[in-house]
Design a protein around this nucleic acid. Sequence first.
RNA 1: GGGCGAGUAGCUCAAUUGGAUAGAGCAUCAGCCUUCUAAGCUGAGGGUUACAGGUUCGAUCCCUGUCUCGCCUACCA
Length: 673
Amino acid sequence: MYLELQQQLSERIRETIQSKYGIELVSIAIEQPPDVKLGEFATPVAFELARKLRKAPKIIAGELAEALSAQSDDSAFTSFGAAGAGYLNVKLNRVATALRLSVENEGLNSGAGLHVLVEHTSINPNKAAHVGHLRNAILGDTFVRILRANGQTVDVQNYIDNTGVQVADVVVGFLHLENRSLAEIGSIISACEAKDEKFDYLCWDLYARVSQWYDAGTEEENKQRKAIRYATLHEIERGGNETAEAADLISTAVLRRHLETMLRLNIEYDFLPRESEILHLHFWELAFELLKKSGVLYFETEGKNKGCWVMSRPGSGNGSDAAAAEDGQESGVDEDAKVIVRSNGTVTYVGKDIAYHLWKFGLLGRDFGYKPFFQYLDHLCWISAEQGEAEHPHFGGAQAIYNVIDSRQSDPQANVIHALRGMGHTAEADRYTHFSYEMVALTPRCAVELGYTVAEEDLARPYIEVSGRKGFGVKADDLIDQLIAASRKEVDARQTERTADERAVIANQIAIGALRYFMLKFTRNSVIAFDFKDALSFEGDTGPYAQYAIVRARNIFRKAGIEPEAALTEFAALDQAAVTSLLAEADDIWGLWLRAAKRSLTLDQCIAASEPAYVARHVFQLAQEFNNFYHKHRILIEEDPARKTLLLATAAVALREMVTLLSWLGIEAPEAM
RNA sequence: GGGCGAGUAGCUCAAUUGGAUAGAGCAUCAGCCUUCUAAGCUGAGGGUUACAGGUUCGAUCCCUGUCUCGCCUACCA
């Protein structure tokens, strides 16, 4: 609601300036004064006008205030005044705003009708998920929830690289280090499932062992081992052999584990496109023709990339790739060009990615086959297949896409966007968002706690990068287990009269709340130096802090014997004059209403900047303000009935907002804490 | 070498994208449970926003230079 008021005010000031001074301003900045006593809105527009009008900002602000005050019939804003060195401050009609807010509960819905595709998680299916993957999945899932709150239709995809070198390494481990047959691998997987052991954990260790094995022998041995590695990879890529079958068995079992891990955090997917289908359904061949036709790709005849099909890099040259190809000899060879097809005819990862992204936008002219893969409570998750079911939903062909991939991938992502633009798909390139974020690393202290040997020079650094190859990292399920154990201890101590089952549910909600909030409170491009002390904290700027505020608010209504909705209805029936004076003298109470009104603003900014942390910050501020309110006002023993109704309504609105905002973050509010 | 990101309180991070006195959490110290649950609240200390210039009414934010740190930068996949 705040956003609408802001836009309304901005437009009105713009018109006033236009009619009074004849100056056309494109946009008017509206912000909030440092203290609510000064008003709810402020604009520094007079500073901007000072030079043009050759008047002091303070005088201009005064004139504008006078002109705006003179305009009649407006119920939203009650007063305009000049303040400070030349700010124009605006006061809101508190009662009217509160009344609107008490009945309004819709989202922003400015994105209605937009069909978008969000891709996140995308873990190589060769080992267990770790903290870094958690950040990816939580960011992605939260952004999906936020886009949906904005009315957008969202398909959630999790890309599976099941034919890459990482899967090949684990296959090498099973076939060559452990000397397992295909059948034995199958029984290991079913034994894990039967014994409730984690197959992805087993792969985690094996992957680390294989990585070491490649370098552990004599020079001659290592050469042979690398040869095994690439032979394995090529067999997996080709398909239709036992090695590929082993890879499929392993990667599918690990993928299933990933989906189970993510489900613990309430993260679900709609579709799992796999690289094996991108290969076998020949997406690349189609894309190759399109790329050649558009001139984005050209055949290099000189220099180090001789014999390759290459493409210019985003930053280089004047953008005309075809022209660059033609006068290549004249202007010198572009040695910096990105190789897409190697001189031996094989395609690079970026090439396959371009093909895949043409499909995402419905520009490839070919589709995956689809098979059901994982059943959620209320929907089915599909997986790509060479020959799928006759009846299936359709994915791809989105209007806008978001790829949640860490910042290390920004170069290849930029290449794909560059290719799309070069092919003339500029609208699609503009709606292609690399939702980039920094990695999760471990503090040296955390690494030592986990029993890893840390090099001397690493001990002095603020953080150390995790590495699946070295088996260095915190596994997602382990972290979740630790969080649940820690919250369970607290719940057991506090909720002695509840059953074990009830306590388990609460402990789970708190643990997930803590974890999701922890991953969301940092802005995207700040590296998270992971530490158990911070991640396991339930105090201060954490998820449980907000959950606790909700529990407190609900307790008020439980003890009062009244529903929050009823309190809001009663509030609406109060004498307006009485409410006016109550709200006028209580800036702290009004501040909570005002904060609650800012949901629309937060949503808008969050989507514009692709920054879920804004929502986390907003809900924390709201919870903080509510806790202050809670301590200051003893609602149940309030004697003035009108005042009590106002206090209850305030709590009801704060409660509603906190619950809504936490649901956007994928965090549930427990019954009790 | 080139590209991207970062440098803010002892630590971890914010700062409505150029606005009024740079704010939170943790940690430290001092208080508040016979009250709607203390996973909470109140207060204190803690800052030359890496450094030097520039742009303007105004700079943590934009520009230039310097320093420091991280990531990316293969015809590997």
